[in-house]
Design a protein around this nucleic acid. Structure first.
Lengths: 221, 221, 221, 221
DNA sequence: CATGAATGAGTCTTCATTCAT
DNA sequence: CATGAATGAAGACTCATTCAT
């Protein structure tokens, strides 16, 4: 049936293809930029190279993006969104508990980092120290990410019926967790290439984080 | 008279000044670069600006440094050295113990970060994502720093007569500690300006780290 | 029914509209270009802006005009035609006399300039110094205009039974008159906005021109 | 003596040459730009061409001028200054009288225009319709020029003991004179090449202007 | 005819680096 | 050593024009 329908409306099909292409053109450019930024660095990549790899002309790049900076920002936003979604979905899978922190660590280190090393390179390296605007975006994304984790930490505390030392402890915990993730990703994945040890590393990272979190619960009287 | 005076004294005096200046010229340029890189960003700072602020000519900059990248690298090395020295001195002050980790945290967050915000900005922001050579240096410095902490962690473990879960646990601990430091510095000092809360923050950071470390000791049978 | 109706009537109606629109499409584009060129300048106006204001696509612009330059040239030709027609009609209204020069001045300064400030801006400003082709057109139009006035001046001389100092004097007179018109238009209308004083200005301009013309008649022996 | 002096201070001589070169470099670039703008048009001339003709690199152009527009503006200012100086000097040569207008016309048409056809091309063609900033400068220069002539006209009126029809008549006269000059220059020098007829043309232009001015004096009762 | 996305040649502009003085 | 004017390669960006649909 569906096929028959398609056969009848040949033109729509074409225009649909056009539409799809149009929608994808921007993504093709982003993909090309992602790979090049991760491999050669943001500064070392020219618009022409991105255009070449995306098989479009330089002018086309400027139809979809305001300027080179805009490409990086859109890339960051995409990565930020995917990251938060990935972690958020994991947090929401079951009841929040200390195990959630463990699962999230596995999703990030054992999954996300291995699957998207270029995204990690861009998020943790190429988007740093480029310009005021990029830095602003970066800050915003990190704060959102931190805030997500802070919320989860708070709820875990509530679930466990425990209070934190200070009202702001969950924020600090979130900051620490993000820091641990970031540096592990850089250290073990970008610098060394110990993808194979990921499991052991993640396991211990989870232990480290759990220990840290536990230490910031107010002890019962 | 005046002329004679000048001929006799002024020249030697001048040349002494020259000598002193000559010795310091490189440092003056580094200082200028440090401030400008931290304030405006590495990419946004031109050699001319650095020369102006250091009150030398652009050509002079190239007598003391191979190129612009070299300035950043020298700056990083200086910061890296100072940082390792600061932390190392603290580690060496007394017998290593879990308290050492605490003291080091205070020295870094409560002291170093507040005293040298520009160094922090350069080390954690401006030196990131600039070029292959800079990244290489950055990696090297981070590895040294991590290695220092790893050694301290190992010794603390020995002092406490405890084994770690794995042989590589101390490395992971060190990586985590560096990550926690880095992100706290960025989050609380570069992004927000919560210099006043430093004490509470450091306190909790220390608790977090201690909890983390403790969790990676092998539990006694 | 509705469908049938559409098939019978709507299409013809549409095609009529189409036809009308088609005829006018070129003019719509010219109108848009005229306004934009006068307001923002020829160089600062893009084809896309013209198309937007004319509510057509950029491609359509190229159906009606060879290129951007062509739009400007067509515009100039239209303005040149209208200007010559306006002045010519005035010259032809009655017997040619020195009063004709006066009337023409009023028609140009007191009427044309006030009614079509954009045309003045394009003719005296935007069409200047753009390209060889445009300059060529401009020259051609100015020569025609000058020639028209020259003819009128010659006839006035004949009517008055006076000879000119030289055979070429009428040409020079025409050139001077055009120069006076041009600069008055620019000075008082484009630069200052003394539309209110137009009458006094025109009056004196006429006196200036009359005095000039009179001085180039050969004095009777 | 002088020569000996020079021989002694060889270095000063060199540095003086340097200084001269430095002062002249900007002028060399301006000269090159002047010729190219006049010949090919402002838009059609690239910075690279200017640099080539001035035998400097493109970068050097940007040491002396902010941008391309700046070159044109500096050129206009130079021309405007020279023009006003030339006319002003002529006005100041002797007592102001109607003859002064005649002499000034000869200086402008018979001298300035023939000697500096490129300056005329730039002032009356290439600087028109280019950008808001250039237009602003152009307006300013024209107003100054007009104002100079207005002042002279006023004084001539006073010298002759005659009043003008209106207080603003001198301004209008000045505007007309500038217009006459401009169009004659364009018509006879840029468009046709009647340099040989200049004398006759100027003579009649003077007559035209004189007649015009005379007609705006208030007639004695 | 109409569309408007795609093109890509063309230019300005920057700035790290060099070198004659 | 110090200078700073000159260099010129490199790259971002624009926009008139084309053409498949």
């Amino acid at each position: 049936m569906t096929t028959g329908n398609k056969t009848e409306n040949a033109l729509p099909r074409r225009s649909m293809r056009r539409l799809r292409e149009k929608e994808n053109r921007g993504n093709t450019i982003l993909k090309a930029a992602e790979e090049l930024f991760a491999r050669k660095g943001y500064q070392q990549t020219s618009i022409e190279e991105i255009a070449d790899m995306a098989e479009v002309s330089t002018g086309t790049v400027y139809i979809y993006f305001k300027n080179k900076e805009d490409i990086l920002i859109k890339l960051m936003q995409g990565i930020g969104y995917l990251l938060r979604k990935t972690l958020g979905d994991e947090f929401n899978k079951k009841e929040l508990s200390l195990d959630s922190l463990k699962n999230v660590a596995f999703v990030f280190l054992g999954d996300f980092c291995l699957r998207y090393p270029e995204k990690i390179a861009i998020f943790f390296r190429e988007s740093v120290g480029q310009s005021a605007e990029v830095e602003e975006q970066r800050k915003r994304l990190f704060l959102k990410l931190t805030s997500d984790i802070e919320d989860a930490v708070k709820q875990i505390g509530m679930k466990l019926g425990k209070d934190f030392l200070r009202k702001q402890s969950p924020e600090l915990i979130a900051v620490c967790i993000v820091g641990v993730y970031e540096r592990i990703a850089c250290h073990y994945l970008l610098w060394h290439d110990r993808a194979k040890n990921v499991k052991a590393i993640t396991n211990e990272a989870v232990l480290f984080i759990s220990g840290g979190v536990n230490n910031l619960f107010k002890s019962r009287s």
